[in-house]
Design a protein around this nucleic acid. Sequence first.
DNA 1: CAGTATCCAACAAGATACTG
DNA 2: CAGTATCTTGTTGGATACTG
Lengths: 139, 139
Amino acid sequence: MSGALSETGEASDDALIAPAFTCGLDATLRIISGKWKPLILYFLLRGPNRYGELKRAVRDVSDKVLIQQLKELDADGVLLRTDYKEVPPRVDYTLTPLGRSLAQALEPLCAWGTENMAEMQRIFAERDAWQRPRPARPK
Amino acid sequence: MSGALSETGEASDDALIAPAFTCGLDATLRIISGKWKPLILYFLLRGPNRYGELKRAVRDVSDKVLIQQLKELDADGVLLRTDYKEVPPRVDYTLTPLGRSLAQALEPLCAWGTENMAEMQRIFAERDAWQRPRPARPK
DNA sequence: CAGTATCCAACAAGATACTG
DNA sequence: CAGTATCTTGTTGGATACTG
């Protein structure tokens, strides 16, 4: 993915990590890439959340995938999992300071989507029109 | 992906597109999802670019994928492809106003990555440590 | 230079079933 | 409630070769 190595061997003194681009954007992208991660982060901005709440908020996500993405976000230090070790189980997820700042950086994207909602509708409608009209009979 | 259909058949009057979340974030995500799209957009913010420049800027991307993502961004109305119909061929890509505003909304993410560069290094190093040490000799 | 055309591998994600 | 364990699928993306 990132060829962090510059075997041309002389231009790597101006950047510490793979200078895949002129800014930190790709570093950020590696953290938030995952279908539901931005949504999870943004949702957690409102406060700590139990697993079930999260799952209801991020609709259409399966347990498997949600847990998986939560684990990765945890491992990356943007959120914290707290298991209260009660019965019935209670677990909640909270943003770390790092995670909070990341989630805040997502706000402009959210705002953009909201402001351009009309445009978005048009775009998605057009996309669906081009996607082969697979009737997609939902069973 | 988006189950925009509510076959329960009555709750779809309060939202025009799938209200997958409480804000426009997921709409935005559907535009910029694609491994290189955010990078492309952000790069184009500096001005129009010819195909070759883009390809050099977004390193490690193949022609196939680059073209594919450019086409999608074009179809979505965030950028414009201009073919000058010369020989040798000259084509350039420019952001539309919509695309420009989107690219600008990416700036905080870029800044976040830059500000937390040290953290990012740590994270990626740790990730690589856990990924099974598949030598992955690149070439 | 700016692509197109195939073919293929990888991984993310979904369905389903089961558990402490 | 909050997961885990498999299995399967589908979409992305990449390698390679070729073209106007």
